[in-house]
Design a protein around this nucleic acid. Structure first.
Lengths: 360, 360
DNA sequence: TGTTAGCACTCCAAGTGTTCGAGTGCTAAC
DNA sequence: GTTAGCACTCGAACACTTGGAGTGCTAACA
């Protein structure tokens, strides 16, 4: 049996009704809708069919129907009408994203904030992954007798640095030499590819003079490269969940919050999602997210690097509206980051002694 | 009327009972305690006095007594017995804090995590404020035709950088010169003091050759200095609040979460607390925190810079235990950061063209 | 043959009444 | 000053009732 026009219409009505009210919808309620001109009895028959086909479920005998994951999927794929954002929202988005747009991190954080405000859901955003970014140069800066700062700069402009505790004494000449040799060796190579190299052998062949330093430097270098791969995760709107009736049950709210505040695990989920606009509902997610729906979309930095932004909430979600907001924000972000090369700035700790020497 | 030995004992019993059970305590319950050898009636009389003196309240006629803020304060100041941490906890703390201790940020984050695990409360930690740190050197790195990276390094080792969009073209010589002049001008001065300077005038007098660049550089320089003053806030254990009976009321949980996830406001509260170990209870806090108790303590980096760490929870809190954990962790942190100069690393974005030139 | 009215049945939510226990305050006796 | 006793209060828990919203089924209708 496949879905007749009428069944689709009924299903559509049930899903959208349930999305707004979060109450199981009954045949009488439906028959009152102006767009549905059928008696409750007829609707009951259709609903019964739809239930058999797996689109609806039944909390208990005398309750209305509730959409299944399968129904949400159908709804999102076929039935949902995409809504266009009101002009004022569009304007607010552009305004707030362009203000202070010279710091990528901050702008992305603002975007997440904005998203949670506009959707009343929990939002998140991750910064782009740099594994395929190419190294531009490597620099060692003197700090104190025992410490230097290692600084790696990518072609796309990311600067990452770490302090290194040196096991053996160094001279500034050593550092300059090391900077040059390492830059020469790695310039133009992708971070991920360098990470799989056998760096120590390079030290043996090229840098005999420096081999005593290699022991301190190589592990830090690898660690710094790994650090470059980290993406930052911003989340916002945690307390929004309390507005949703599905989380008036404390245990559910707790479960949600626990899932969502496990940053490491959550980042992992986000990083591994499909590119572009991705909507996953219920059991399409991993086990721990099976009660939720996620919508994500990508933004681009300089037309290349890809970050991601989205929301998580109950399966009963205003897919149309939320999707529009997310798309509008990601498009806006991409546009913002395309025009200029925005700054993504951070900090590093070290104790330079006479660092301006480095300029001579 | 002042507090007799016996009243104190009763009050102590009430507070500690209420802290563990969160139920109003009645006279019968108290009289059953082995350390209190009085009949319920006597206890009732004493409780009645204590209520009159403002130490106890009464949810309704036939309920037990509940401690007031004043009672908690007395309890913390005089009655509470500080508990010593079990050796295994101490060991766990040292172990987990010393692992990966070369990154300050990360270690501080771990400390917050640890703290929330051990106390089952919401924990937080802020990194040290650098307003009195001295500038060590300032460096401009070439990126592309329109962009350079500004990098400011403090004596205490903090490195902060931003990308600057240049309004007019620059040469590498310009950058080197600018690095030198600015380093010369600001080396050894505290960040906060430089922030109050009139920098533009310096450009006019010292750097005529560079004045065309000043328009782009000065605002960014100030912004970067301000960025150095930002402290990072880490929080952990949000979902712990659901274990507490006081937050089984959804509205209260929501209120708590909203208060606590307002990072900006919360950071502000933390930064302005008293130094050392600080416990504030109920109405000793600002209006929005009046239903909570906060405990914070400081840790030191290199014996000087001061960061802060603590918990927030209901006024009914195991003050003794929690204080011990916090103190042990902050002591441990201070110790960790004293031995070595730990790395606090971050990142910056820029698009260097031929940056190794900077080394020659 | 598809649609609808009618009816018996189910189940939850909300309201009501009752009971029970833990608590208080007060008074009088020790 | 302390305690026992007693009347009283209040909320939590439980059972019970009721009403409404819903279903499924059957039979009648177009």
């Amino acid at each position: 049996m496949d879905l007749s026009e009428r069944k689709l219409k009924i299903l559509q009505a049930i899903v959208s009704d349930f999305i707004t009210t979060s109450e199981p919808v009954g045949s009488r309620t439906l028959s009152k809708r102006p767009d549905i001109d059928l008696s409750p009895a007829t609707i009951r028959n259709e609903m019964s069919d739809l239930e058999e086909m797996g689109y609806l479920t039944h909390p208990h005998t005398s309750a209305g129907r509730v959409p299944s994951d399968k129904a949400y999927r159908l709804y999102v794929d076929q039935l949902m009408k995409g809504s266009d954002l009101p002009a004022e929202n569009k304007q607010e988005i552009s305004q707030r994203l362009h203000k202070d747009a010279d710091e990528l991190d901050q702008t992305v954080e603002h975007a997440a904030q904005l998203l949670s405000e506009m959707t009343n859901l929990v939002s998140f955003a991750i910064t782009p992954n740099r594994s395929e970014s190419k190294i531009n140069y490597i620099n060692f800066l003197p700090v104190d007798e025992g410490t230097v700062v290692l600084m790696i700069v990518c072609e796309d402009g990311k600067v990452t640095n770490s302090a290194i505790r040196m096991n053996s004494p160094y001279t500034e000449e050593n550092l300059t030499l090391m900077s040059k040799v390492m830059t020469h060796n790695f310039k133009g190579r992708a971070v991920s590819s360098v990470l799989t190299d056998n760096i120590t052998s390079m030290f043996e062949s090229d840098m005999q003079a420096l081999s005593s330093l290699a022991g301190s430097v190589v592990p830090s270098f690898m660690k710094t490269l790994e650090k470059m791969l980290n993406v930052d995760l911003y989340m916002d709107g945690y307390s929004n969940i309390f507005r949703l009736p599905e989380y008036s049950d404390i245990a559910k709210a707790q479960n949600f919050l626990e899932t969502v505040t496990n940053k490491e695990q959550f980042t992992n989920v986000l990083v591994n999602r499909e590119n572009g606009l991705a909507i996953t509902i219920g059991d399409e997610n991993s086990e721990d997210l099976k009660d939720f729906a996620l919508i994500t979309a990508d933004y681009k930095v300089n037309g290349k690097l890809v970050g991601r932004l989205g929301v998580i909430g109950p399966k009963r979600m205003k897919y149309g509206e939320v999707t529009s907001v997310i798309k509008y924000i990601t498009d806006n972000l991409s546009q913002t980051f395309e025009m200029e090369a925005p700054a993504e700035a951070g900090e590093a700790k070290a104790l330079p002694e006479e660092a301006s020497d480095n300029d001579k």
